[in-house]
């Protein structure tokens, strides 16, 4: 599926792209607000500065995806694979990242205000300058606390619930 096809589908009102295989698709600056991309394969996809508000990425494969400056407010990223993804300057305000896989992800200057990061794996992630106010890391079961091992928290703001 080419980006044009995808955007035409979206423009015609289609929202459900569950399980689609869209590896490497270039949707930079695209507006696909509210789409359902559950379980989709979006490895290496390009979403630079795209509008992804409230998109459902549950269990999607976003490994090495380019999400710099993407607007992911209130997006559902539970259990999504975001390993090595580029989320530089992305806005993830109120996003649901429970159990998301974020090892080595770049979250520099990302907006994680009120994001739910319970049980997320952030080992080796770059959180320089990221805003984490009100973000939730707490897990009732101690065993599943968010993994921040090796994460770079320079200039990252605290006041989160950890």
């Amino acid at each position: 599926m080419t980006p044009q096809d995808f955007l035409e589908c979206y423009a015609s009102g289609k929202r459900n792209f569950k399980g689609f295989s869209l590896a490497g698709i270039d949707l930079s600056k695209a507006d696909i607000i509210g789409s359902n991309l559950q379980l989709a394969n979006l490895e290496n996809a390009i979403f630079t500065l795209a509008y992804l508000t409230r998109v459902n990425f549950r269990r999607a494969n976003l490994a090495r995806a380019q999400l710099a400056g993407a607007n992911l407010n209130q997006a559902n990223l539970t259990q999504a694979n975001l390993s090595d993804a580029n989320l530089h300057g992305a806005s993830l305000q109120g996003a649901d990242l429970r159990s998301a896989q974020l090892p080595l992800a770049d979250l520099m200057d990302a907006n994680l205000i009120e994001a739910d990061l319970r049980n997320a794996d952030m080992s080796g992630a770059n959180l320089t300058g990221a805003c984490l106010r009100g973000a939730n890391f707490r897990q009732e079961d101690r065993k599943y606390i968010a993994n921040l091992r090796g994460a770079n928290l320079r200039q990252a703001s605290s006041k989160c619930r950890c």
């Binding site: 400056g69 607007n71 300057g89 806005s91 200057d109 907006n111 205000i113 300058g129 805003c131 106010r133």
Partner: peptide, 19 residues
């Protein structure tokens, strides 16, 4: 500048602000 960054992020896209 923590409060300032927070305010910028609340009202606009952080990457765009940086650019």
């Amino acid at each position: 500048l923590y409060a300032l960054r927070l305010e910028i992020m609340r009202y606009t896209n952080p990457l765009r602000a940086k650019i």
